[in-house]
Structures are given as C-alpha cells and as structure tokens.
C-alpha cells in the first residue's frame, strides 16, 4: 500500500513538473529559457515513463532527446538572433481568451469523459520479458511496417530540410582542372585580322604616347 502511495506521489510530482515546464516553454520570454524548460518537460516525461515501467523509452528519451536533440536545438536557438519584443505583441491581449477557451475545453473534457468512472484497460502485459526485449520484439514483428514508414518520414524530413535550407552559391569561383587541361590554343586565342596601320584618333592618344 505504501508503495502505491509513493508511486502516486511521484506521479503527481512529475506530472506537475512536466505540465509546468510545458507551460513555461510557451510562455517565457527568452527562447533559450524555453528550450531549457522543454528539456525539463522531456525529463519529467521520462520519469513518468520510468514509473510506468517503460525503462527503455525513458532512457531513450533522456539519451536521444535531452542528450542530443535538445542540445542541438539549444545551439540553433542561441545562434539565431531573434528579436524578442515583436513576438510578444498581442500575447497579453489574447491571453484571457486563450485561458478561457482552454478552461472551458478542460471542463468539457472532464465532464464528458467522467474521470472518476474511468478505468482505461491496460495494454498486454509483457510477462516474463524485459522491457527492451519486449519493445524490440514488438517493433520488429508486429510493428515492422510502421517502423519502416517512420524511417521513410525521417528520410523525407532530411531531404526537405536540405531543399529548404541549402543555398548553392552561384557566385563562388572555382577551378575546373579537367577543362583547364583540355583547353587548346584555338579555344583561348582568337586571331583578329586588322589593318596594318590606322590614323591617329585624337589628341588624347597623342598625349598618352608622349607620357609613355
């Protein structure tokens, strides 16, 4: 019984932190702080998963998201020079409406679903299997197709990011050694037929001559 109470307390604590941090993500002024709050959200979510005995997912979330993705994100946000003031315009003005809509929706949801009567059926219990083992089996048997489609989505994300972000510098100067060594005299020098002598055009030319 004590164990269950402890688990409940932990759940509530982590859930509150997660929701609070998520609120901070969208409400703090400084984008770097927002990213850090997002890290906290992920971390709390990882703890929640840990409570639900999904150890592998929790670790993956910490290692992949908190460890790698968010750090990268932090770099990007720090490099971007974002002017904070214009982004705040209208925030306070729309805040009451937004809160009002959110509260009404929350009440409706709670009222309709009826939180107290609800006992969500749990998924199949992976008895006698470690979390990672079960996840691996599930991913590569039952969920192989979605797993592969997710891989395709990642590929598309990569290609799309390159298409949208890569700017080929058309003005850069570079040498083409193949063309350089293949060149022939005829391609470089053009022989122009000219008259042997011309009449002196004007006084300026004469002046230049005398200076030389």
């Amino acid at each position: 019984m004590n164990h269950a109470i402890l688990q409940m307390v932990c759940f509530i604590a982590f859930a509150v932190v997660a929701v609070g941090a998520a609120l901070a993500v969208v409400s703090v002024k400084n984008t770097v702080h927002a990213v850090l709050a997002l890290v906290l959200t992920f971390f709390s979510a990882a703890c929640l998963w840990m409570l639900a005995e999904a150890e592998f997912l929790a670790l993956a979330l910490v290692v992949v998201y908190v460890g790698a993705v968010m750090v990268l994100f932090l770099f990007v946000v720090m490099m971007l020079d974002i002017d904070l003031e214009p982004m705040r315009e209208g925030f306070i003005k729309y805040l009451p409406i937004g809160i009002g809509a959110a509260v009404i929706m929350l009440l409706e949801m709670l009222g309709i679903i009826g939180i107290k009567t609800l006992q969500v059926p749990a998924g199949p219990n992976p008895a006698g299997m470690s979390n990672i083992e079960w996840l691996g089996t599930a991913l590569f048997t039952h969920f192989l197709l979605p797993f592969e489609i997710a891989a395709l989505i990642l590929t598309v994300g990569l290609v799309a990011a390159v298409v949208l972000a890569l700017r080929v510098r058309t003005f850069s100067r570079r040498q083409n050694p193949a063309a350089q060594s293949a060149v022939r005299a005829a391609g470089r020098v053009r022989m122009v037929k000219m008259a042997a002598s011309t009449t002196a055009p004007g006084p300026t030319t004469v002046g230049e001559d005398s200076q030389a």
Partner: peptide, 25 residues
C-alpha cells in the same frame, strides 16, 4: 488498416507537401 499506419501515412504524405509549397524560397 491500423491507426498507426493511418497516422504515419498521413505524415508521410503531408511532410513533403509542406516542403513543396515552400519550394520557391
């Protein structure tokens, strides 16, 4: 035939479409 494939199919369709709309940078 499964909610997951529905969702992933939807994403795989939509993600390139967003990029294509932005093709003319």
């Amino acid at each position: 035939g499964n909610l997951i494939t529905v969702y992933l199919g939807l994403e795989l369709f939509a993600l390139p479409a967003y990029a294509l709309v932005a093709l003319n940078r």
